[in-house]
């Protein structure tokens, strides 16, 4: 695993990693490193869940502000796109570069329709949370039982 992280020519003469016990494959830098158009980065990773009233989407976007992000809901499709602008100072020696940089876009098909006008976005400590209210048709209906 450590070898994977150093194969991209990053010099490790002074910084040598210890105790790299494991890292989750999903978060492996190999999933997003490389500039090949055939190696489209999967960033950000997203968790999606729901309750009776809303769908929720959460994404880890450290270092971003809401201004760096564009969030669209069109029909049952959610799009999260943006760009991480990182510029190195001049005259620095790069020892490691694992953090995602550059443009990204992800599109998700939602399981129900949502009220696009009422979507709420909160970004706190690098975690984006979207609350997407279900349309009345998409909510589970409570059926009144009448007793005769």
């Amino acid at each position: 695993m450590v070898a994977n992280r150093t194969q991209n020519g990053l010099p490790l003469n002074r910084w040598q990693q210890q105790m790299e016990s494991f890292f989750d494959e999903v978060l492996s830098p190999q999933n997003w490193q490389g500039n090949s158009p055939f190696n489209v980065p999967r960033f950000p990773l997203v968790n999606l869940w729901e309750d009776d009233d809303n769908l929720y989407a959460e994404a880890e976007l450290p270092g971003f502000s809401l201004d760096d992000l564009e969030i669209y809901v069109l029909g049952e499709e959610l799009t999260i796109k943006g760009e991480r602008k990182v510029s190195d100072e001049e005259d620095v020696k790069v020892h490691r570069r694992e953090r995602v940089r550059g443009k990204f876009e992800r599109v998700f098909r939602l399981p129900t329709s949502v009220s696009a006008d009422e979507v709420k976005a909160v970004l706190a400590n690098g975690v984006l949370t979207l609350t997407l209210p279900k349309t009345p048709e998409a909510k589970p209906r409570k059926i009144n039982i009448t007793q005769e």
Partner: peptide
């Protein structure tokens, strides 16, 4: 589970600067 955060490390003349992504941390 414990996760390994992504890091950028650069060296300048008089110091090292390390950036670590720790989303969700306070």
């Amino acid at each position: 589970k414990t996760y390994t955060p992504h890091a950028d490390i650069v060296e300048r003349e008089n110091d090292f600067v390390l950036y670590l992504d720790l989303p969700g941390a306070k």
